[in-house]
Amino acid sequence: MKSISLSLSILLASFILGVSFIIGSVLLMNQDKDSSNGTLNQTEAQQTLLLDKVLLTLKETATYLGMNEDQVMSIIKTEQSSLNAFHHFEGKMFPFIKVQDQFYVSRVELDLWIQDASSNHRRYINGQLQ
């Protein structure tokens, strides 16, 4: 009788442990989904705000383009170097203005620059326009 009682106790404990493990896993999965949805909604909200602005900061421009600020600055420097070296530039140049030490980019002109750079298959590699 004692061994049956012990077996039942072990079986019941195993069942409770298994159910607890499954419930915990489901709760963790749902928590991950909620946090990723929050990140997605935040990114969508940022994009919507950027679409309403006329001038973007360098950081906002990088976000809009899906790049980092160093990559955007590299494009600006590369195009400026090309213009200085050859005294002309084929196509549309990156649309920025500089106020004191701050760069600002026209969102509308940026969209046009994207179309031009894409259609001409521009390549920016190691600070060189290729």
Rank of each mutant, 00 (worst) to 15 (best):
G38A: 13
N41F: 10
S118L: 10
P95I: 08
N68M: 07
Q128D: 04
V108S: 00
L56Q: 02
T43S: 10
A13T: 06
Y104D: 01
S118T: 10
S20K: 03
T39E: 11
Q130H: 10
T78C: 12
N84E: 07
F21T: 15
L83D: 00
V72Q: 03
Y124M: 08
S119H: 05
F96D: 01
D34M: 15
D101Q: 12
Q42L: 15
L56H: 00
S25G: 12
N120I: 07
E44G: 04
F96T: 13
Q31T: 15
T78H: 06
L112D: 03
M29E: 09
G127K: 03
M1S: 10
M93N: 01
S106R: 07
K2L: 13
M29W: 11
T78G: 07
I97D: 05
M93L: 15
D101H: 08
E44C: 09
Q100L: 12
L27A: 09
K59F: 02
S35W: 13
E79D: 05
L55D: 01
D32P: 00
L8D: 00
T43R: 11
G66Q: 07
E90D: 13
T78N: 06
E90Q: 12
Q130D: 07
S82L: 10
Q42G: 07
T78M: 11
Q130L: 14
E90H: 11
E69T: 14
Q46D: 05
G91I: 14
T63H: 12
F15N: 00
N126K: 07
S14E: 01
L56P: 01
A85S: 09
I75S: 04
M93I: 15
L11W: 02
M93V: 14
F96V: 15
T43M: 08
I22G: 07
T63K: 12
I10F: 05
F89H: 12
E79K: 10
S9C: 08
A62R: 02
L6T: 04
K98F: 09
K2W: 05
E109P: 02
I75V: 15
A62T: 01
